[in-house]
Design a protein around this nucleic acid. Sequence first.
DNA 1: CGACTGATTGACGCCGTTCAACGGCCGTGG
DNA 2: CCACGGCCGTTGAACGGCGTCAATCAGTCG
Lengths: 244, 244
Amino acid sequence: MDNIVVNSSSTARRTTIPSNCEHCVTARLCHPALEGHQALRSTPFHGQKLIHRGEHVYRAGDPFLNLYQLHSGSAKVRVTSLSGLEQITAFPIAGSLLGLDGIETGVYSCDAIALEDSLVCILPYAELMDNCHDDFGAAQEFNKLLVSNTNQHCRLLLTLGCMTTEERIAGFLIGMSEQMAANGYSPLEFTLKMTREDIANHLGMRVETVCRVFSRLQLASMVKMSRRQLKIRNVDALRQMSCG
Amino acid sequence: MDNIVVNSSSTARRTTIPSNCEHCVTARLCHPALEGHQALRSTPFHGQKLIHRGEHVYRAGDPFLNLYQLHSGSAKVRVTSLSGLEQITAFPIAGSLLGLDGIETGVYSCDAIALEDSLVCILPYAELMDNCHDDFGAAQEFNKLLVSNTNQHCRLLLTLGCMTTEERIAGFLIGMSEQMAANGYSPLEFTLKMTREDIANHLGMRVETVCRVFSRLQLASMVKMSRRQLKIRNVDALRQMSCG
DNA sequence: CGACTGATTGACGCCGTTCAACGGCCGTGG
DNA sequence: CCACGGCCGTTGAACGGCGTCAATCAGTCG
């Protein structure tokens, strides 16, 4: 139901609504017509954009105009303090909505950076708001989406505030696994698209500690890792270690 | 402009719109009529509720019906994991809106607990949504409010992920100070309403460490503390220590 | 092929936790 | 009113987990 079609670069230049979007998780927001509301029957399609690995989807400080839905690929969302400290707050994958942080002030407060070549759908916020204006159901869905983001951050706060490094890593892997499953991929075998450095930053640790924990998990036969390729051998043990 | 009238228990049983609310930060959401929109001219007032120190405003797991605006007093918002780990995500004070975490699933995901006897305004979510339906400006304000919440959590993530204990405490005090200033209280002299334990939990530390850092700050003449009464002696040093 | 970035492992030291004891404030009840 | 008890806050000493520094290795890209 939530199937996301995998990146196919041939769709990068389309100017009509991609047929993929019929199965898209937020299709109702993009194209309310699909839901049979008497609202806008059709929403202009504003195209997709190919973001290469390492490039920004948007930057902190840029004027907030669009939301971006990750159609394929993956990214990291990063917040930076005045003094230059950086914290990665999320690793969105296909289906995720990016750019919400700009809603508060009209300026993005985070950076979103592609972890691999990724395709994003451009959703002009003004038009999305128009849709919400006409389709109150969509507006309420949108509210839920905003709060869902907040609640995810709460869980991460709990991780950073209360857990040991082992628990953080275990929880991180379980989370990634579930995210994969929710998108129709294998939950037990996938590749981590981010560096150890990124993982460390996200979890409030150092690279070396991340490596050491990975080594220990491997020694305990809970996972098998070779570079970024991951195979989970004992989900239950991992889940137990992650503190629920 | 953002003045919040201090708790007066005589208002606890009012059944009409309290005159205080004219200056309330979210008055537009509660009472859109005040903004001259052609939407609802008047919104039913659903009363206030006195919450004693230590009592819950709402509990995780309760069905989500109302938002609560803290009219006076203060609270802590806490998220709890399945395994019983707890993390305090915020210390809202007068003017803050509580209960947003329930929007995602229709069930509150956090606990909100009063730190002192506090007065909350009850805002039935359904009626607030009705207002937003009729007054699209209010709906957009509400979106900003939701995202503002998320962005605050991002800053806390940065604190927990990147900062030393001293930087966390300094940042915490600066934050409290600014919150006080924004509400018309003295930014340099106020009382912390939460326990050391609460502060420690919020900042991902232990009580003993919190005490030790406080002691050091006092030794350095940056603050003067006696129990929960706080006087800031050197804001600049504190702000610098807090890592911007 | 060579330089560079990312990943891994070891040795060491420090910051923050843990454990323990004490002091002080406050609410309660006599 | 005072006496008591419990919670909150503070301080000390010792431990240990994780960060720091450094060296090595493995891919990757020019």
